[in-house]
Design a protein around this nucleic acid. Sequence first.
DNA 1: AAATTCAGAGAAAACGTTTTCTCATTTGAC
DNA 2: GTCAAATGAGAAAACGTTTTCTCTGAATTT
Lengths: 339, 339
Amino acid sequence: MVDLGSRKRITIHDVAAAAGVSISTASKALNNNGRMGDETRERVKRVASDIGFRPNALARGLLSKRSFTIGLLTNDTYGRFTLPVMAGVSEALVDHGVSVFLCAIEDDPALGQNHVEAMLDKQVDGIIATGKRIDRSLPVDLSNLPVPVVYAFTEGTRDSVTFRSDDAHGATLAVEWLQQIGRRRIVHITGPKDFFSVRERADAYCTATGDTEPVLYGVWSESWGHDAIDRLWKRSGDRPDALFCGNDQIARGAVDALRERGIKVPEEVAVVGFDNWEIVAAQTRPPLTTVDMELKELGRQAGLTVLALAEGRPVKPGVRKLPCRLVVRQSCGGKPSED
Amino acid sequence: MVDLGSRKRITIHDVAAAAGVSISTASKALNNNGRMGDETRERVKRVASDIGFRPNALARGLLSKRSFTIGLLTNDTYGRFTLPVMAGVSEALVDHGVSVFLCAIEDDPALGQNHVEAMLDKQVDGIIATGKRIDRSLPVDLSNLPVPVVYAFTEGTRDSVTFRSDDAHGATLAVEWLQQIGRRRIVHITGPKDFFSVRERADAYCTATGDTEPVLYGVWSESWGHDAIDRLWKRSGDRPDALFCGNDQIARGAVDALRERGIKVPEEVAVVGFDNWEIVAAQTRPPLTTVDMELKELGRQAGLTVLALAEGRPVKPGVRKLPCRLVVRQSCGGKPSED
DNA sequence: AAATTCAGAGAAAACGTTTTCTCATTTGAC
DNA sequence: GTCAAATGAGAAAACGTTTTCTCTGAATTT
């Protein structure tokens, strides 16, 4: 059988007893408030640390109405977007002693409701909602909760605080990079038009290229990238000398298709992806230059914001767009390996 | 500014007042214990539900010493293994009202210690440790904690409960499948020999093939799969008619290399991967037949086990190996598309 | 009719903290 | 040498539950 040592937990009573003071004095000593002699304060602190006292967060939370706990709600099963966001949230909050409940609710409203209620019962200080696309909301209503809610990479309610990537900026980065290395016939191969991000990136692409270069809408898969190349090379007229792809999977499919046709990347066609999904981008041959949405930073800011709200600090509602970053690998030439 | 409606939270005092009973009676009514008239009990319950009462888990936990909260500790940044495990844990525990703290500690002992202490302060009922390989332990000592610890897909301490996949079983499944479809010259291309899983799979492969067919050790990347094919096809003697690869990335690299050489998969060479990492396995052309380690089920069992321990139910220590499952796609012929 | 059981319900303690209040003693000012 | 202020520390209430104990009547038994 598994032994827990059945160690009794050490409470402030033990500290008080060991230091020969009252519980209230012990508490005040440890929290650096109240009035007492320096010697007493130091002695209490030393004793507490010696016997390994750690205050019970449940008891503390009961009184302070702060549980130092927040919930991260997501419907992104794959974790493609959630993991970096989660990493950022956690990183920002661990220093404040805040732990994070992760709740994956798929697209199940009942499950979502379940998780939200469980979190509220546990008195979370706030909730961060995140998802897999910025123009869809989670299948659960978070609009009248007794705790602050911040949206990150998912659609929020009016008057809420929402963080998202600036996809237009990312697309502009990509296109301008391709133009800088001298490419002029840039084609945009991307996902389904009903994604807001897709339209936003396509618009930025059109603005940056100056004319309405062809935009090929499809799905988010490698095989669409592959097919798109077939389609482009089948038609007459000038062939592109660069591709800006809507995500790394499409880009990978396109790069593979080009290689199969004996077309050199990046010499004949330069390729830029989107997402910086390491597992795809770094394993493509050649590794993909791609746009990173800085989801970790997004998570960090969402974390700090929900903390601010929980502490009653005022935060202006609205949508905050965070800039993207171009990660240069070898699919455009330019800089050599960076990994 | 963001408005929280500053809704006062409803306590059992409100329920008692609204129902015209004492707090103790209200509590007993809601928990179906104590003695009182049926009418009283029903009235309290109705009132509670009407005014939307939900008990404060902090207060409850303070008394019962159960927080209905567990921690999941991982050093698998990518989430490749953690996400399915987490999904299983969460799925198994949500019905019991248990929420899960996810703590990604990378390989940083200080960060790990931080997170563990934060969780203990919050009185978690137990901790599940998980990681990225079964023969390494987390960079933090979990052996003398006041709460139960269960290990899942990471190395545990002596006398602990550890769940892991049965890699020998998985490898046997793969090889036997290849033999069933008539392949006789099966080569095993796999990862670094210092991984315990690698040795275990290789041993099972040797046992199943009956002789010491060649095992090619390398790294966990597509390019190694690619290189391995180059090496195999450069050397003299019989060419393999099947490959059993140590993970899906290697398998994908191998499949790509075969295609580039004009060798048909699965007609000339059948390929089986390992991991069933959707993003790799399903996007390979042809999609990979691969071994799934059933990490979600592993997580589910780990969750139920830590719950049992938290409730004081006895659990035998030891390593539990869970069977794998072969996911048939098209890289071996056999069944047609299943996705 | 007195003694016993039992149903129904409330009072109070407990969980581990923090915080406000109170009290006794010492210090400083006149 | 008296009085006000400051200092050091403890008592007690509070947070929202659950649980044990106690109390009051009424029903049942002798």
